[in-house]
Amino acid sequence: MESVILQIAARHMRPILIVLSLVVLYRGHNEPGGGFIGGLMLGAAFILYAMAFGVSKTQKSISFSPVTMTALGLLIALLSGVPALFSGSPFMTGEWITLFQHTVVELKLGTPLLFDVGVYLTVAGMLMLVMFSIMED
């Protein structure tokens, strides 16, 4: 199936979806969103591309394999639990550092965000892994 409309749409939608998925990932802690939804969106971005251009072309256009992405996600999620051990808390306790504090704006980073990044990558990776292998022909 070669559709010019789909191809043009996919080419322009992909970066937008990727950025959007990152936004959803980051804002997840306070507003609706999070790693799982973000991961689904990221996966969807690549699946849309694969529907328009085919799996092999999509895989060529990205420099990592879905397997690596899944594994990396799991690893990050696992490692995010480790910092808590150094402060004597149980594995996976949330640890936070405030990078920037102002009366209005506040930037906090914590291991739960890192964990969410892990979820995000794992979900997207597994989605791409499954879809690519089924769509491939």
Partner: peptide, 20 residues
Amino acid sequence: AFGRNVVNVILVDFRALDTL
């Protein structure tokens, strides 16, 4: 847990081990 999104906080903090 410093998060207002309860669903997400449950997923990544309170029940992070389950999510893992």
